[in-house]
Structures are given as structure tokens and as C-alpha cells.
């Protein structure tokens, strides 16, 4: 009985929707649109479709996405967290040999203040804020993300060209914002050496 009435209601709803759509399309057909304008609307839709197609294919098939890892962290207790304790910051190799860079943004610098990474190598940056909103951009590279307190901003990228790059805060974070910057050295892949303290850490962890 009850199921019957629900089925009946669904049936009515579907019928109503179809009626509405038919009515909508019939009414819209009565609108006068110049043939030239119709052509232009089609061209515009084609352009939009092309652009949407490119970004969608890039996102789904090439994995080209902006930093979007929704991961929370207590920004007020970073020093007590294992991952972002002071001794654990900077460039490290993880168990699989991948390079992870852990950085803390706080008024008014990025910590550690200087790091060295290899060129042409996949790097995973993990940025956190210890106070307010920050942003980080390494000009001329794809390394750009917002750093929102309460969240870990993770971004994976690589630097094609060796050199000295500035690391700039690009979000207003207070009156000293201008002074919030640090340095990164991108070193030719063959000249780069994994930081030694990492190995020590690893041994300590293993031991």
C-alpha cells in the first residue's frame, strides 16, 4: 500500500517534469533568434566546449590539478606535532626515496629559511601556517599555493632549471608582509646530495 503510493508519487513527479520540459522547450521555440545570432551562439558554445574539454582532460587523464588535499592540522600546536616539529623541517627522503619538503610559514618568514633541492626531480612540498593566512610562490615555477591555517597545503612539482630562486609570500599576512621571503637553491640533479640529518633521523626512527 505504502510502496504503491510512493511509486505513484514518483510516477506523477516524472510525468510533471516531462510536461514541464516539453512546455519549456515549446515556449522557447517561439522566441525569435536571428540566424546570424544563432550561428554566433553555436560558435561561442564550441569555444567554451573546447576550453572546458582541455581542462577536464588535463585534470582527469594527466592529473593536472591545483593543490587540493583537504588535510587538517592544528596550526597552534605545530611544534608539538611530530611531522612539523622544528627538527623535522626541510628536505627529507621518505622510505621510498621520494623527496618530501616540509615547510612552516609564520610571520614573517618561511622556515627553514634556506633549502636546497635537486632540479628535474619530483618534489612533494607540504606547507603549513603557524599563524595567519599566507601564500607561497616561487616565481618562474609552478610552486604556488595558499597556506591556510588549520590545513596542510600539499603540492607536487619539479623545477626544470637549476638556480637561486626567491620564495615569496604572496598573501597579505600583516604589516610586515613585504619582508616575508626566503631562498631556495635548485641544484643540478647530479650535484645534489640528500641532507645527512635525514639519514640520522631515519636511523633514529628505525632504531
Amino acid at each position: 500500500m505504502q510502496i504503491d503510493s510512493i511509486v505513484q508519487r514518483c510516477h506523477d513527479l516524472a510525468g510533471k517534469t516531462v510536461d514541464f520540459l516539453q512546455d519549456f522547450i515549446a515556449q522557447m521555440r517561439t522566441v525569435h533568434v536571428d540566424s546570424l545570432e544563432q550561428k554566433w551562439i553555436k560558435i561561442a558554445l564550441l569555444i567554451i566546449g573546447l576550453l572546458v574539454g582541455i581542462i577536464t582532460i588535463d585534470a582527469f587523464f594527466h592529473g593536472v590539478n591545483p593543490p587540493s588535499k583537504v588535510e587538517t592540522i592544528d596550526s597552534a600546536r605545530l611544534h608539538l606535532s611530530k611531522e612539523f616539529a622544528e627538527s623535522n623541517l626541510g628536505v627529507q627522503l621518505d622510505d621510498k626515496g621520494a623527496i618530501v619538503v616540509r615547510m612552516v610559514a609564520g610571520r614573517y618568514s618561511f622556515f627553514p629559511k634556506h633549502i636546497s633541492v635537486p632540479a628535474e626531480t619530483k618534489l612533494t612540498f607540504r606547507w603549513v601556517s603557524m599563524d595567519v593566512l599566507h601564500g607561497v610562490h616561487i616565481p618562474m615555477t609552478n610552486m604556488s599555493t595558499m597556506i591556510v591555517p588549520g590545513y596542510v597545503a600539499e603540492i607536487t612539482t619539479s623545477f626544470p632549471k637549476p638556480g637561486e630562486y626567491p620564495v615569496l609570500c604572496n598573501e597579505y599576512c600583516g604589516l610586515g608582509h613585504n619582508h616575508m621571503w626566503s631562498n631556495i637553491s635548485v641544484i643540478a640533479k647530479e650535484d645534489w646530495q640528500a641532507p645527512t640529518h635525514t639519514i640520522a633521523n631515519k636511523e633514529a626512527n628505525n632504531g
Partner: peptide, 19 residues
């Protein structure tokens, strides 16, 4: 470029932006 929203939602809004 924000970390607090997932990429699917961003892409959805991105497509709407082109529309």
C-alpha cells in the same frame, strides 16, 4: 590554490566559470 577544498569541486566551479 586553496588546500581546504578538493579538486573535483574546483573543477566543477571552473567549468561553470567558462559557461
Amino acid at each position: 590554490m586553496d588546500p581546504e577544498q578538493a579538486s573535483g569541486w574546483k573543477l566543477l566551479h571552473g567549468i561553470g566559470t567558462f559557461v
